[in-house]
Amino acid sequence: MEPTAAQLAELARQLAGTAPNEIDCEAVLDCVAAYFEATQSGITPSADLAMVGQHLEVCPSCLEEFQALVRASAGE
């Protein structure tokens, strides 16, 4: 399989957001709620929670789920 230019551009976007130390998707699930509430309240996330934001830059699946959390919480 040969990736398209658009897919390579998406990969390049992920590379630009790649950090030496990252948390994985399971770890994100444990703290994404706190990250969401902090960002919704306009509070700067702690260093611990900031790693969630970094993960969302490089993981399309978790980003999709975070956006879903925003939509799901809109009516609460």
Binding site: L29, E65, L69
Partner: peptide, 19 residues
């Protein structure tokens, strides 16, 4: 972890399951 509302955390888990 108790650093958010329980419901927000549960919703995040539910979204992971559904997605």
């Amino acid at each position: 972890r108790g650093d958010s509302r329980f419901t927000t955390w549960a919703l995040a888990v539910g979204i992971r399951v559904a997605m």
